[in-house]
Amino acid sequence: MDSRILVVAQRDRLPHIESCGGLVGRRTGAHTVHLVSSAATPLGGDRITVRVVVEPGALLRLRSVAAAIALPGPATPVSHAEMVLEAGGDLDVDLEPTVVAGSAEHHATLAACVGDTGCLRVRERVQIGRSAERHGLWSSTVRADAAGRPLLRHRVELGAGTVGDDVLAAPRAAISELSYPVGPRHLIDGGTVLELAGGGALTTWQGDVLPAPPPKSG
């Protein structure tokens, strides 16, 4: 299944949403859109494309209502997800984790372009395997530019069959957060902060199990 969603945020207007396939968007606030799965996705063979455009002076928070579970399909275990971000205003993307089930293989790509007046935060969380599973594979490729210049080129793989895999001690969970033009808005306990030459920072963490989210206040 091919799922596509477009979200456009303009100043002083509610976000505009277009979608098809197994993913839809719902406005849950004046500046907030939640992604909702309308079908089981991603399965092997599926492709998900999310494009977000935030025009200058606009604000958008992109969230999801539940974790995404990548499962093997009947013909192939491989699924793909692509996110394209154009941040002319303030864009904050913080989706629920992606869980890669045993024998599934999920490849994610992120292409981000931040304008001269833009602000961006993107957090990604992934867990290899459900309970007692350790044989999924996940890869992530990030290409980010800011103010017309390269900001970050980053690639990481996790899980069975990757170069750094080790049945005894290899991590099975990861968190990464790209923030620009300022540093990280939320520090990850035990994480590593890499200050970027063009501004902002990349914060990363790896472990065996994703930490529980902090309790919500109020």
Rank of each mutant, 00 (worst) to 15 (best):
R149S: 10
I17T: 08
T32A: 13
A87V: 00
A87W: 00
L35C: 07
R51M: 06
R185K: 07
G136V: 04
S103T: 15
D2V: 12
D94S: 15
L210H: 11
V65P: 00
T98W: 11
T204A: 05
E105Q: 15
S64N: 01
R185G: 15
P215V: 12
G129V: 05
V100D: 01
V84S: 10
L210T: 09
A112E: 04
P213C: 03
A30C: 08
R63H: 06
V122G: 00
A104L: 03
T162L: 11
H106E: 03
D189S: 14
H186S: 12
P74W: 08
L210D: 11
T41D: 02
H154P: 01
A147P: 01
R63C: 08
V65K: 03
A201Q: 03
Q206C: 11
T109S: 15
H107S: 09
G199H: 05
R143H: 13
R47C: 09
G73A: 06
P150F: 07
Q127L: 09
A39H: 10
E133D: 09
A81P: 00
P74T: 13
H106P: 02
E124W: 04
V78N: 05
Q206M: 10
V126M: 04
S64K: 04
A170R: 02
L85E: 01
L43W: 01
V167S: 14
V84R: 11
R47N: 08
I5M: 00
E18W: 11
L85C: 01
P213L: 08
G164T: 13
K216E: 15
T109E: 14
D116T: 13
G73C: 07
P72I: 03
L62Q: 06
L60W: 02
K216T: 10
L187Q: 10
H80Y: 14
L196T: 05
L196C: 07
H186C: 11
Y180R: 03
V84A: 11
A170G: 13
G21E: 06
E55H: 04
T204H: 02
L168F: 12
A132K: 13
